[in-house]
């Protein structure tokens, strides 16, 4: 009896270890350790093949004087701020589609479409949309005898043009989060609100939005991450140009590490560390909230 109890006890303390081991080892190997390796590499001068030379914080010192770094950082801030527009836009479309007319399910799926397709395709489509000679944008501007403007060739407009393209799938993402959120809203509270004569904006503000808080929280998290991960569209639409004016940190890092003038892995890693630290702020906020939710459980 006691022997079997001991074996049960052993089994129950051993089981989680065995179930966790493959995932944890794999994740450590490919995700957790590389973070620390990157931090270490950022203290070296390394072309990716030969010997590494320790240079201390030289890469970071160089970064402080690098104009391209500040351009990228500034563009990251613009991305972060403007990308947030996807949240109200997604809410707006979700409210528009939250009806039960015939064929609504198909409409919802079609509105979600931009999120399912690759950013490479989104990038190609919008490059073409902005094309100064034949692009639809300039055709439309032509109707009002405006233009032509080469959005992607203009240092002032290029970042906004790329962000606009990015907002298309991101809005679709936020929309779907809100559609599922709206389904979970308590109908009794809405009826109670209606009896109290709450309508339109007041109803949204005081009854609906508080109940949509979980959806809004996820929408903010995925949008912030999307904005900081903005690599694909920049790479496809402009490759950072013209003259580096549309670079973001994620792209600049890649460019430096795999530059045609020689690989600078250490310098690239230093840029990545800065990006990582910015992201850490959000990760920490997320974890703290999650920890509180778990404790309150």
């Amino acid at each position: 009896m006691s022997a079997s109890r001991a074996s049960r006890f052993n089994q129950r303390s051993l089981a989680p270890v065995l179930f966790l081991a493959p995932a944890v080892l794999f994740f450590m190997f490919y995700v957790i350790f590389p973070i620390f390796q990157s931090i270490q590499i950022s203290l070296y001068d390394w072309d990716g093949l030969g010997a590494k030379t320790y240079v201390g914080i030289d890469n970071y010192v160089e970064l402080m004087d690098d104009e391209a770094f500040y351009t990228s950082l500034k563009n990251n801030v613009i991305w972060l701020v403007l990308y947030m527009l996807a949240i109200p836009a997604g809410l707006f479309i979700a409210l528009f589609l939250n009806q039960t007319v015939f064929g609504m399910r198909l409409y919802k799926s079609l509105f979600f479409f931009p999120f399912v397709i690759s950013q490479v395709v989104v990038g190609l489509v919008f490059t073409w949309f902005y094309d100064p000679s034949y692009g639809l944008l300039n055709v439309i501007l032509g109707w009002f005898s405006l233009g032509p403007v080469a959005i992607l060739g203009d240092e002032t407009w290029v970042t906004y043009g790329i962000i606009f393209a990015g907002l298309w799938p991101q809005t679709a993402y936020c929309m779907i989060l809100y559609i599922t959120g709206l389904n979970a809203v308590d109908p009794e509270q809405i009826e109670a609100g209606r009896l109290d004569n709450a309508k339109g904006w007041n109803m949204l503000r005081y009854i609906i939005l508080p109940q949509l808080k979980p959806a809004t929280f996820i929408a903010i998290v995925v949008t912030v991450i999307g904005a900081l991960r903005s690599f694909d569209l920049v790479s496809i639409m402009t490759a950072g140009g013209p003259w580096g004016s549309s670079r973001v940190l994620a792209y600049y890092m890649y460019e430096k590490a795999f530059s045609e003038y020689g690989f600078r892995m250490g310098y690239g890693a230093a840029i990545a560390v800065v990006l990582f630290l910015i992201m850490m702020i959000y990760i920490t906020v997320f974890l703290v909230k999650m920890y509180r939710d778990e404790k309150g459980h």
Partner: peptide, 18 residues
Amino acid sequence: FMFVAGNFVPFQILMVPV
């Protein structure tokens, strides 16, 4: 939390070592 946090890191911090 390790899984959650790792899931959110920017790809670039992993790029060179991976």
